[in-house]
Design a protein around this nucleic acid. Sequence first.
DNA 1: CAAAATTCAATTGTACGCAAATTAATTTTG
DNA 2: CAAAATTAATTTGCGTACAATTGAATTTTG
Lengths: 158, 158
Amino acid sequence: MANKAVHSDTIPEEALALGKQLCFAVYSAAHAFNRAYKPLLDRFGLTYPQYLVLLALWQQDEMTVKRIGEEIGLDSGTLSPLLKRLEAAGYVGRQRDPSDERQVIVRLTDKGQDLKNEAFGILVGISKASGCSLKQAEDIRETLHQLTRQLNAGPGED
Amino acid sequence: MANKAVHSDTIPEEALALGKQLCFAVYSAAHAFNRAYKPLLDRFGLTYPQYLVLLALWQQDEMTVKRIGEEIGLDSGTLSPLLKRLEAAGYVGRQRDPSDERQVIVRLTDKGQDLKNEAFGILVGISKASGCSLKQAEDIRETLHQLTRQLNAGPGED
DNA sequence: CAAAATTCAATTGTACGCAAATTAATTTTG
DNA sequence: CAAAATTAATTTGCGTACAATTGAATTTTG
C-alpha cells in the first residue's frame, strides 16, 4: 500500500495531473484564443473583452451597462472602466437614460458602427487560426455552452 | 440589397453574434470554472491560478519559476508575485539555486504537501459541478487540447 | 579571459475580473 | 407621502495576465 488509496479508494494519483484537468484545458484554450486575437485587435487598439462588447452592440445597439453585462457575463465593476476606455477610443458614447437616471445607455458611434465591417476580417482570421471547420466549431461550442450552463447552475444538484 | 453582402458574399450577419463565437464559448466556460472553483478554494485561501501551481508541484516538486511557467503557461511577470503570495500563505518555499543563482527553486512546504490530500475533495466537487462523466470530460479535454495546439501554432499556415 | 550576448527572475505599467463599499435614483411600503 | 428597501453605476482593493524594462548571473565568442 505505498501509492494509492491513502485518501479514497476510487481516485488515482494521476487524476491530479494538470493534463488531466478539464478546467485546465478550458483555461489554456481561453489563453490561446486571447493570444490569437491580440494581433488582429491591436490594429484597432482593442482588447478582447472590448471586442466582445462591440460584438454585443453590433447585434443590439443602445444597451444599458447592466444589459451588456448580462450579455457577456461581466459585472459593472469590470464594465465601467472598460466602457470608459471604449468611449475614449471613440467607439461608443455613454449617457444617462433621461427616463431613469440610474441607468447609462451605451451606443455605438459612427466609428464603432464602421468597425463592424472590419470585424468580418477578424472572424476569418480567427477561424483560420483555430483550424477547425464550421461544423466542428459548432460542435465544440454547443458542448461548451452545455458545460457552462451546468457549472453556472451551481452546487444545487448532483 | 438592404441587409447583407455589403462586406463579403460569404459571411452572414449572424456570424457576428456572440452566441456563435467559439472563442466566447471558451471564454464563458473558463469564467464558469473559476466561479465553480472559488468556494472550494476559498477554504484554503487559494486562487485558481495558485491552485494550478500546486497541482503542478504535486506532480513534480522543486521546479524553477521558468519551469512552472512552461507547465501552466504563465510568464514570470505573473508568477513572481503569485509565488510570493503562495509563500506568504505557507504552501511553498522559494530559494535561489546555489548552482545557478539566476534561478529560483520553488518547493512545497509540509503544509503544501498535506494539501494534496484535500485536493481530491476539490476534484470531486468540480467533477460534480461540471456534470459530465469521466469519459465525456476526457473527450472535451482532448478536443480543447487540439484546439489550443492549433491556436498556439500561430498564423504560419492556413 | 574579457566583452558581448543570453538567460532568469523581478519590477513596472496597463487592463481585465470580481467582491465589497459608495452614491444617486427609483420603488416599495408603512 | 415620507422612510425604507431596492436598483444601477461607479469606485476601491486585490489578484491575475502580459508586454516591456531592469538587474544579476551565466554562456558565448572574439
